[in-house]
């Protein structure tokens, strides 16, 4: 299993949740909305490029809009490997939860 930092894990989850509209700005907005913590766009970019190097997400250019001055976005999608990794993490967490008496 690949090692994932907690920020990487969160961003990967957000990308999965956003389904086809995950790009730098939107992810940073979503992050702030869901976690209540603020994050800079550049931090999101670095994390996503790291995830891409690890092969957990892939990207393509597309979807230019007026508010971007006609510039395209780099849209990120989770790869099957990325989905597998996140499921693995979930499974192992759940196993641990199950071991806690009085909770699971």
């Amino acid at each position: 299993m690949q090692n994932l930092g907690s920020l990487e894990e969160t961003i990967l989850l957000i990308i999965l949740a956003m389904d086809d509209d995950a790009y730098g700005f939107s992810v940073s907005e979503a992050y702030e909305q869901h976690t209540g913590k603020s994050i800079s766009i550049s931090a999101v970019h670095t994390v996503m490029s790291r995830l891409e190097t690890k092969g957990l997400i892939s990207s393509e250019m597309g979807g230019e809009t007026a508010e971007r001055g006609g510039r395209r976005k780099r849209i990120f999608k989770a790869t099957p490997q990325g989905v597998a990794v996140i499921e693995e993490i979930k499974a192992s967490r759940q196993k641990l939860w199950g071991l806690i008496p009085g909770l699971g």
């Binding site: 700005f25 230019e64 508010e67 971007r68 001055g69 395209r72």
Partner: peptide
């Protein structure tokens, strides 16, 4: 530059 500038501009207007 395209994606970064795009993201920053979008964020700016928002």
């Amino acid at each position: 530059i395209e994606e970064i500038q795009g993201d920053l501009h979008e964020a700016y207007y928002a």
